[in-house]
Design a binder for these strands. Structure first.
Lengths: 364, 364
DNA sequence: CTCCATAAGTTGTACGTACGTATATAGTAC
DNA sequence: GTACTATATACGTACGTACAACTTATGGAG
């Protein structure tokens, strides 16, 4: 029998030392130079031995520091090559989401990351499935737009599992209050406050708010509305608060119509977003009233819908594409610098004035 | 940023050659000596590169014989239940793409497949990166919207490599003529013929076609235009053919203006798609002409843009969401039934008549 | 035609040298 | 005591040489 090559003999000898505890877990083993002298071989041979042990998970090397006994037996072979980022949003094709996803994809692909995509249709069951899929695919980071962010989320344990595994993640547009996750979003409360104040400044007093109640954005936007009133020490009419959620959106038209037929119907609307605004515009025009002469209307997000119809909406900006880019860069930073506790990014809202608002002409 | 070490560069270069099929599965790659000369480095460096690829499972070495491309592409992940479908499109956020992607995602997630997404911006270099990424991530199927489908594609060898590995794939919207890949798309030629015939029926004779030349859809739509004329044995004016491509789209406005200022300016336009139609509408209105009284205009795709402006466009339907669903179901079928040679799906175009067309009022 | 020794080619082992880059530490200045 | 700097030390990259071990192709003997 031919004797085994030196580097195999040395490898086995070192392995023995590790296994019988001579080289303790997490401790530094002798340097390559020392081992070279000890075994009377070239450094190259030592490196060969150590390379195999590193590959098998017994050792870990740190440039400039030394070689250490690994504390985990081949825990997992970290796929060094291409990393994957998971992205979960409520919707994909609607509204501002394509721009957000595009921003994310653009940054990720330029940095050599793959993008695993999933949507929830704002349904927590789907969110669960998405999270399971992402975990199974072993994503290296997650960008999540929360589903039903205003409600208690039944998938919280999944998020905790993600944290436990050390997978960095960031919320966009909203976040779950129960988790202290970093978030990248618009300051929705201040945004709504600005919109409402704008209308109040124009002399409107009976302002109707139309907002969503099952996501945090809707709640925040409602809070902003309330705050604008309280800042000038006035109260708003509770009858002029229209709320809806993902499931009850079909009834929204009726609710709007009812408010428009009130004796003291509103002279202005603050809408949850441009999509809702378009709906409201349609109902206003259906009863023959004119915007902005009869009724003023404002909304959030400044999407393509803001200027798509004949009514050019006064709205609040939304970073969209930039938000996606920021989220992607955030998650890449978290992965590469291993820093999970990065800051949130909250965008400052800016009012974009168009022709959907005018002074209140009614006599008080 | 410091440049990467030689052995990493060489490693990646060899990996590419494997992924794009230049080094075929199970075939022998050049010897260390040959690679050494090819890359002009020492044999040691080559051995470093190859060692990593062997470790990652791309290569196998046999002493005395050579180094071979490993064929274990999908061996280890066979057990994992969750499969991944790669989707490569030219764009993500623009136009009809969000709907297509949504359709794909909806079907895939319901069937328990994961979706790996990438876009090319209609740039073949990006397409190459995307394909490499998909192969590295070991997707189980591919849905591809070809990039620059009218031109000879430099990434054909990647596609051949995909076929070799037995990964099913399907083209959407267009296809590469060099490959005999199944495709899911609109019958663009017939669509354009219908649009043009519609205008001819209305008495228009000087019709301007505005089309794209670097994708197959554009070429097909041009052919349909030509065929409509030839069916009634008439010739069209070559001066009224406006072409553009991804890179020259900035000059399009000028080209349109020039045609509009011709002595015998057109009385109707056939547009590549709604996006282009909106541009043409803007230029027509800029010179004070009215649609459809002065000039008629038709376009493809029936997107939200068809009805977004005050001009409601006569257009050709596009399945969008359904196309995405069909593509997803197609690829799932191919995987589960292991049948790669499924039929293509070609949608029949339907004319959707709105108010952007009227009879030619000019005297012949 | 078959068998087998040989040559040629390929990867494996092992040595050496030199310099680059990252980390830890001891010493210095403040 | 703190902050910075210089130095030593560790691993990383890259060049080179030589020969061993193994496989495959070749060509001649039978």
């Amino acid at each position: 029998m031919v004797s085994e090559p030196k580097y195999i003999i040395i490898k086995n000898e070192i392995k023995q030392l590790i296994l019988n505890g001579e080289y303790e877990v997490s401790s530094k083993i002798p340097s390559e130079a020392e081992l070279k002298d000890k075994f009377n071989v070239s450094r190259h041979t030592i490196r060969q031995s150590i390379a195999e042990l590193v590959n098998e998970g017994y050792l870990k090397k740190e440039q400039g520091s030394g070689t250490y006994v690994s504390n985990q037996y081949r825990l997992e072979q970290k796929d060094t090559s291409q990393k994957t980022i998971g992205v979960i949003t409520t919707y994909l094709s609607d509204y501002i989401f394509p721009s957000i996803i595009r921003g994310i994809e653009d940054v990720l692909s330029k940095k050599g990351y793959a993008l695993l995509l999933s949507s929830t249709q704002n349904n927590v069951e789907n969110e669960k499935r998405s999270l399971e899929m992402m975990l199974e695919k072993r994503v290296d980071g997650l960008i999540i737009e929360p589903t039903k962010s205003a409600n208690l989320n039944p998938n919280l344990n999944y998020y905790l599992g993600i944290q436990e595994r050390g997978i960095p993640y960031v919320s966009i547009n909203a976040s779950y209050e129960e988790l202290e996750a970093p978030e990248i979003r618009m300051d929705d409360r201040l945004a709504s406050e600005k919109l409402t104040s704008h209308l109040l400044d124009l002399g409107h007093t009976r302002i109707c708010m139309v907002t969503k109640t099952d996501d945090l954005q809707g709640k925040e936007r409602m809070k902003g509305f309330v705050r604008a009133y309280s800042k000038i020490n006035k109260a708003f009419d509770g009858n002029l608060m229209i709320t809806f959620d993902t499931e009850s959106i079909e009834n929204l038209t009726k609710k709007i119509d009812r408010v428009l037929q009130l004796d003291n119907s509103p002279t202005a609307f603050v809408c949850y977003n441009d999509q809702i605004a378009v709906k409201v515009i349609e109902r206003i025009q259906a009863i023959g009233k004119k915007i902005p002469q009869d009724i003023s209307i404002v909304s959030h997000d400044n999407s393509f819908l803001s200027t798509a119809t004949d009514v050019k909406l006064t709205s609040i900006n939304h970073p969209k594409d930039q938000l996606g880019r920021d989220a992607a860069n955030w998650i890449i930073q978290a992965i590469e610098k291993n820093s999970f506790k990065q800051d949130s990014i909250i965008y400052e809202p800016k009012l974009i004035t168009r022709s959907s608002t005018s002074k209140n002409t009614e006599i008080d």
